[in-house]
Design a protein around this nucleic acid. Sequence first.
DNA 1: ATAATATGGTGAT
DNA 2: TCACCCTATTATC
Length: 264
Amino acid sequence: MPEGHTIHRLARDLNRDFRGVSLTTTSPQGRFDDGAYELDGQKLVRAEALGKHLFLNFSFAQVHIHLGLFGKFRRQKAPADPPGENKRLRLAGPEVVWDLSGPTVCAIINPEEFDAIAKRIGPDPLRKDADPTRFVARAAKSPTPIGGLLLNQAAIAGVGNVYRAEFCFLAGVNPLTPAKKLADETAQQLWDLSVDHLTEGVRLNRIVTRDPDEVGVARGRIKKGDRLYVYKRAGQPCRRCQTPIKRDEIANRKIWFCPSCQPA
DNA sequence: ATAATATGGTGAT
DNA sequence: TCACCCTATTATC
């Protein structure tokens, strides 16, 4: 399940497999039949990620994909298994096949629609063209809890529920703190954390915020269950101070924090 | 076998 | 703030 790193990694992997390749496209599920028919036989010019949005730029069409909470892309070497019931889109090249299931969005869009999305979302820490001052300035004005602002894709694009909780911990910030009460330096620190950790997320294709030195192995070798500081660890001891981790809710989503390392 | 849960987002109220 | 959409995996009976 996807935060921004997943989508950027996907764009990279799809480019490696399919950039410049003519693809056979089908919608085994049938819910994207028209689109798949239109794309069929076109070359993938480039896959690109903007926050949690994925764009597949074909020779004569652009596809917008958003995985939502459930969406997945899976890769197989050809020859591929027969597609199951729930494949919205199959992209088949001569050597590799990618299947998309469960997306919130999978649609052909026009340039105006692309521009509208690009304009709507905030700076993306995984993009070189991102402007962090937009995030810092917005935080300085926002009465929203910082734990909520970090989930707002118009404020910072690509951060999800795992990273938002982990970044607040790493910055020593209580997630309920109104964003505008934070020093600009703290907002900037949250931005810097997002750049570092999302980049690591792309590299590892997984979320690992834990300091490898604490565990004594490389970040990529940290075992499941040891990779995060607070996410889904309610009641368990803080990895830094042993205080039991607390759970709360911000913006309809659960969030976890250490009441001692992240005081109100 | 069935229920609960999940790294997301939209649109109505 | 809430209901709802999308699917797969894990937990509970």
